[in-house]
Design a protein around this nucleic acid. Structure first.
Lengths: 333, 333
DNA sequence: CTGAAAGCGCTTACAG
DNA sequence: CTGAAAGCGCTTACAG
């Protein structure tokens, strides 16, 4: 004989134990009007005694609300995603929503049909995405009728809700700082050539340089996810570049490491600005100069926007735009 | 008139469109024997045309398998968790399982009843936990009959499956290295005084020191989650400690920063060893000396163990034990 | 205030 | 090889 595993306790069991109907038990547990104190106590006692735990799948099937939110991201390797996901999912949990994770597994930088299929199969109450929808998915997503929040990107172009930061402004800060430090020849290392955030930072950077009488030459614009990193560094070193702006801190760290191993000294031989200030999240010393969005407020804002949509308090697409600041570190003089 | 949102497409719709029964449609979609090529094509065509997407909640309710795995962690702020969660959830996704996230929200360092309640409400097929079960939850968890894998901790004491690293050995490596560097007075900064991993590292560290003729004095053992960090650093600086081993890299970074701002130089004035090698994950320069588990293998092993349990290939509790290595960085001489 | 019935969208026996 | 019925565990109308 096997050791028997505890039988699942259902509403039926609670009904049997209390002598009430399944219906009444359900009403008490969901705090729907009307029941007597006496009934309430009986139900709660039986639930405790038998160890009743609701089946959210069953409840969601009938009620249409699964109390689940899908969170879509690229990866958790970048602390920026991990940190915001942490804050956001915690906030959701407080409000009774569980988070289910989806990633595009690096297939594309967008939410495509394949990804939406697996998301929809879970019937989430809401979808919070770090990725923009693919062009042909915008209508599909709207037709689902499920609240969709684009986090970290402006939703307006899609007619969707979004929480974004002023990326151009961030790029501008980087450019102004590198100029002020006295660097002369500039490069940008982005992630993907077709991701809006990446381009916005690039454009802000280029604009600041232009305003300062300098220039971001096309041959000094690179995309780390589309080329060998050693080739990028090779080109930068060969080109005599001394002012480098990177799309994010991970790329900046990689550049710092690669240039360092070529005998170049950060600050002195070249200046480097990253983005996200992940060293603050890790409680690290300020190794690099970087742009900081104020990640806590940023993440909380994304969570709140979702919760408002779920509560029906907000219906029209809503935009929240955040301002960034530059945080000086050891990678610029 | 509101813009109508696309009506949900169910098996019934596919049945109606094809003239087949719901049953047959389901059988084709689940690739159960027996149906003709003709029927198969008709069903697939109708699904594509109408945009059918299965409802996993409904399917899970009936079949008993939700294709969901619960992942329980402390937080995603520590890149060690984020990184492993990323790898593990990707592997699950490949095998058709979605991951649903749970955290104890810093309440305790253990899986308690409150947490298990919300987990069980989702009827996951498996549970992978970075946290150990609270003592009074071990029987409860076993009784659920749901595969449970403890990640990063030895499951054996609980009679559960687990993937762990040799933590004592890691602590020993730190001790040997700090001794070899010539440091004389030692301290350990842990996380919690009652978490096994934390104590294992401490004991390994103390053992190595003893073997080398040195000592880890009780007054030089601290727990970062249980005290003000500035007090810890104050005590270390006042006590003339010059060899510090930290439970993880985040704590090590904090110590590096705090000691640095007191004018002390890492390597020269004091040696510091962390744990996890998160700087490699971030592609950072090797700022600190740290212990590396080989996070990729480690994470993959956790995912595989879960998948084996789910496939019924593995039934008895299974332990996988990993060996760590020390990676020299700038924080020791 | 409480209960009996129907139904959410599937899959699982069971019949043919 | 295909279909009609029952049921997973809930919640939602509806009746009393």
């Amino acid at each position: 004989m096997e050791h028997e595993s505890k039988k699942k306790v259902t509403l039926k069991d609670i009904a049997a134990r209390t002598g009430l109907s399944v219906n009444t038990v359900s009403r008490v547990l969901n705090k729907k009007p009307y029941y007597t104190k006496e009934v309430e106590e009986k139900v709660n006692a039986a639930c405790k005694e038998l160890g009743y735990i609701v089946d959210m799948n069953a409840s969601g099937l009938r009620s249409g609300s699964t109390h689940t939110i899908a969170i879509i991201f690229d990866d958790l390797v970048n602390p920026f995603y991990a940190f915001t996901t942490d804050i956001i999912s915690r906030r959701f949990e407080e409000k009774g929503y569980n988070s289910i994770m989806f990633s595009n597994n690096g297939r594309t930088a967008y939410v495509d049909y394949e990804l939406m299929r697996s998301v929809m199969a879970r019937k989430p109450d809401g979808i919070l995405s770090f990725l923009e929808p693919a062009a042909d998915m915008v209508e599909f997503i709207k037709n689902t009728g499920i609240p969709f929040v684009i986090f970290g990107r402006d939703g307006a172009p899609y007619g969707m809700s979004g929480v974004d930061a002023d990326e151009e402004y961030g790029g501008r800060l980087a450019g102004e700082h590198l100029l002020a430090c006295g660097y002369k020849k500039f490069a940008y290392i982005g992630s993907w050539h077709d991701v809006k955030v990446c381009l916005d930072r690039q454009h802000g950077f280029a604009a600041a340089l232009r305003q300062g009488g300098a220039e971001l030459l096309p041959e000094n614009v690179f995309y780390a996810r589309e080329a060998e990193f050693s080739d990028i560094i090779g080109a930068i070193a060969a080109g005599g570049v001394d002012g480098i702006f990177c799309f994010n801190d991970i790329i900046a760290f990689m550049a710092l490491e690669a240039l360092g191993s070529r005998g170049l000294e950060a600050g002195a031989d070249f200046g480097l600005v990253g983005y996200d200030n992940i060293q603050q999240m890790m409680r690290m010393p300020r190794i690099i100069t970087t742009i900081d969005v104020g990640i806590n407020d940023f993440a909380v804002c994304g969570a709140e926007q979702m919760l408002k949509l779920l509560a029906g308090e907000q219906t029209a697409p809503f935009r929240s735009n955040h301002r960034t600041v530059l945080v000086k570190g050891g990678s610029t003089r």
